[in-house]
Amino acid sequence: MKVVFINPFLEATVEVLKTMAFIEPVPGKPYLKNDNVAKGDISGIIGLTGDARGSLALSFSEGSILKIVGNMLGEPIADMNGDIKDAVGELTNMVSGVARKKLEAAGYSITAAIPTVVSGRSHSILHVMGGPSIIIPFETDSGAFVVDVCLSRKE
């Protein structure tokens, strides 16, 4: 996967969480993912097509997502309810939108599908491309989450 594909997703994630949840997540060093097991307790996945194809997943630990959604809604949330699932879908959508805008500026026109949300510990994330994906780890005061990107330029 090209490096040019990583930064738009990293920047988009920070931008979305800063604006919608008033949280500034700290990105760690991206690494190659070598299994299909999600890193978090709940994940949003979205398919991407166009000049590059693949998928994007955001996988949150319980602590991080409870804090993020609580901030978004302006009320504390104690457990993983329907609001959380819904918000993970919406956050995935927004990160994909902001990242695609950045990719468009770099010459890649990409469209996205409607996100799907999966929850439960150790669930799998299978990217459509089947190829290797890059994990961008993030830390927040309330826990970790990862952005999992699998994207290849259309030949």
Binding site: T19, M20, N93, M94, G97, V98, R100, K101, E104, S109
Partner: peptide, 27 residues
């Protein structure tokens, strides 16, 4: 309101008579 900031979408919305356009995420 949309996460779609692509130029062609903005043009389509303006053509259809949108009053204004806001891209997510927003404050």
């Amino acid at each position: 309101v949309t996460a779609e900031a692509l130029q062609e979408n903005v043009i389509a919305a303006v053509k259809a008579g949108v009053s204004n356009y806001i891209v997510k995420p927003f404050t």
